Amino acid sequence: MSRIAVFVDVQNIYYTTREAFGRQFDYRKFWAQLSERGDIVIAHAYAIERDDNGQIKFQDALRHIGFDVKLKPFIQRADGSAKGDWDVGITIDVLEAAPEVDEVVLLSGDGDFSLLLSKISSKYNIQTKVFGVPSLTAKSLIDSCNEYIEINNSLLR
């Protein structure tokens, strides 16, 4: 069986599925679908830490499914904007995992990850897959992976 590493950009998936479908991503369905393709040996979900009961329950649900939930503090800037970007953390974890797996699966539409996927695919000869919302996934990210899987109704709740 293929050894799979999964990396979820939680904020990106939350906002893109909400914008495109008005619904939430179903992580249980996703896990079940991915488990049929191989052995999930690494599963990280990157989220923002807020003292919000809904967020805490959601993060606990992700842990129950099998994800290691990595949290970064929510930062509110003086101008009212917020910061909570996990791009560097995700990149480091993907680079560390790539030599140990056969397949890297990224849930995100963020084009900043396109160079990363191209690099690990060529350097480690592994498969790269991206799950993203079709209208909100960067073309560069789609072009950089071996397989792009559209998030659609089958992966929503």
Rank of each mutant, 00 (worst) to 15 (best):
I4V: 02
A5W: 07
A5Q: 12
V6K: 05
V6Y: 07
F7K: 11
D9V: 00
N12P: 04
I13W: 02
Y14P: 00
Y14D: 08
T16Q: 05
T16M: 01
T17G: 07
R23P: 05
Y27I: 00
K29E: 04
F30L: 02
W31F: 07
Q33M: 09
L34W: 02
E36S: 08
I42W: 09
H44M: 12
A47S: 14
A47R: 06
R50T: 11
D52A: 03
G54A: 12
I56V: 15
D60A: 13
L62T: 02
L62V: 01
R63K: 14
H64W: 02
G66K: 03
D68G: 09
K70I: 09
L71W: 05
L71C: 06
K72H: 06
I75P: 12
A78D: 13
D79W: 05
S81P: 09
K83N: 11
G84M: 08
W86E: 06
V94P: 09
V94M: 04
E96P: 06
A98E: 10
A98P: 13
D102N: 14
E103T: 15
E103Y: 01
V104E: 09
V105L: 14
V105T: 12
L107D: 05
D110M: 01
D110E: 00
G111F: 00
D112A: 10
L117M: 14
L117W: 06
K119N: 12
Y124A: 08
Y124V: 04
Y124G: 03
N125F: 02
I126W: 01
V130M: 10
F131Y: 15
V133I: 03
S135T: 11
L141Y: 05
I142K: 15
D143Q: 11
C145T: 15
C145I: 06
N146W: 11
N146F: 09
E147W: 01
I151H: 01
I151Q: 00
N152K: 10
